[in-house]
Design a protein around this nucleic acid. Structure first.
Lengths: 238, 238
DNA sequence: TGAGAAGGTGTACGGCGTACACCTTCTCAG
DNA sequence: CTGAGAAGGTGTACGCCGTACACCTTCTCA
């Protein structure tokens, strides 16, 4: 009976079901524990069964990335380029923060996935519609770098490494050990003197969202200035 | 005789020799082919011998990173903060470009290495000496992100992936396939219309160094403006 | 209805990091 | 000079990993 029920309710494997399970697994346990074997077990299936739906592990991860990138909101219909890009990037940030393993997975790949290309293409479209030359639009995309996908490559940031081996550890900010302060006095200073509720720069005491928007606006404001003065790479006012 | 000669000339293993060999191997063959077994073979020794000098592979890579980061030039003695930081970052960029595997290795780690902390501390010191508040210095460090170590997290950039599986492939820029242009028209446009000698944005046709300095100066100029107007996070003029 | 396609299974291979017990070689106090 | 102990190199083995390949089952449709 249990067997029959099981048989009846057995959902057949599919690429989509595999990708969703893989994302759930990576979200929960970290991408390091996403192995074909683990994933298969999660799906109640033998490892090799997966290969009937995904070519290999690399293609599996590409699929996961595409699914995550697909969560980014479409552009606002009627707004100036700056507002549109800003909101889009913040939406990207939200999407990627739901999946802490994603940034490193994206960076580790040698080729961009179709969904990433589509997203980038759309952002360029926004800039062009906003009056940017192809030239300036090009440099802007480079200047934004990975920030355009909602993550800044923070060297301090521990949260993005949550996806490496498990969910975020919410240890208390943890005092800076005295040896640290002695060896790296300037880091210690900005860590302890941070204006927003005191946190450790090496720990996760500071407000990631604030830092992200700070950098984003620094870039957008600078870009706006360049655009207003009709910047071109041949004649640059510097 | 050969045996005796061999014995005489046998250099004993050492942490330093291991790190140098590991870096050479990663530079030449990509970090993916840096295994304890490969490395041991390169050194004419059995894999487990390495563990008498490095705790494990993770610590090995940390050591490699520290060695690379140690190649960054010290700060200029007498110059304004902007010039000093700019030169320092460009020096970091040069150092890391000699070791294409390094950026990803750095990002993949959960904890910063001592040499990285020392470098960051020194940059903060430059800012502080230049009159930055701890507050602004803090945000600036976040805003620069990984760019401060000389790499921008380019989604387009293929060169940094050279370190993944081998030395840079110097394929010709390769025409954009028509399907690409059809599906991603805006990307195709900025790729083909790039002002500096036409290259592909997905390929490696554009001038990385130019793009890097473009972004770096965009940030530095914006930061300079903030500092001149005595920006603080509580009262921010935006 | 029955052939062929699509999808799940089992076994096996060659790689990986590294624990652990062992053996060799060097160093230096007595 | 000697011999004990430390430091450093070796060999074997374990449990992971991705995935090739042959096989078997189940579903689909002419």
């Amino acid at each position: 009976m249990a067997e029959q029920a099981e048989t009846l309710r057995r959902v057949p494997l599919s690429r989509d079901r595999i990708l969703r399970a893989a994302i759930a697994l990576a979200d929960a346990a970290g991408i390091d524990s996403l192995s074909m074997r683990n994933l298969a077990q999660e799906l109640g299936v033998v490892p090799m069964a997966l290969y009937k739906h995904v070519a290999n592990k690399d293609e599996l991860i590409a699929g996961m990335i595409d699914m995550v990138v697909g969560e980014i909101d479409p552009p606002l219909p009627d707004a100036d380029w700056k507002h549109t890009v800003r909101e889009r990037v913040l939406s990207a940030r939200q999407a990627l923060r739901r999946h802490p393993w994603a940034p490193l997975a994206i960076e580790s790949r040698t080729t961009a996935t179709p969904a990433i290309l589509a997203y980038l293409d759309s952002v360029v479209g926004t800039l062009r519609a906003g009056g940017f030359s192809t030239d300036l639009a090009h440099h802007v995309m480079h200047a934004m770098g990975s920030r355009i996908l909602g993550f800044s490559q923070e060297l301090f940031d521990t949260s993005r490494h949550a996806g490496r081996s498990g969910p975020a550890n919410s240890d208390p900010p943890a005092e800076l050990p005295p040896k640290f302060a002695a060896r790296f006095p300037h880091l210690a200073e900005i860590a302890t003197a941070a204006s927003h509720d005191d946190g450790s720069v090496v720990g996760q005491g500071c407000d990631d969202q604030f830092e992200f928007e700070f950098a984003l606006d620094l870039l957008l404001d600078g870009i706006e200035r360049l655009q207003q003065q009709r910047w071109t790479s041949s004649h640059r006012p510097r």
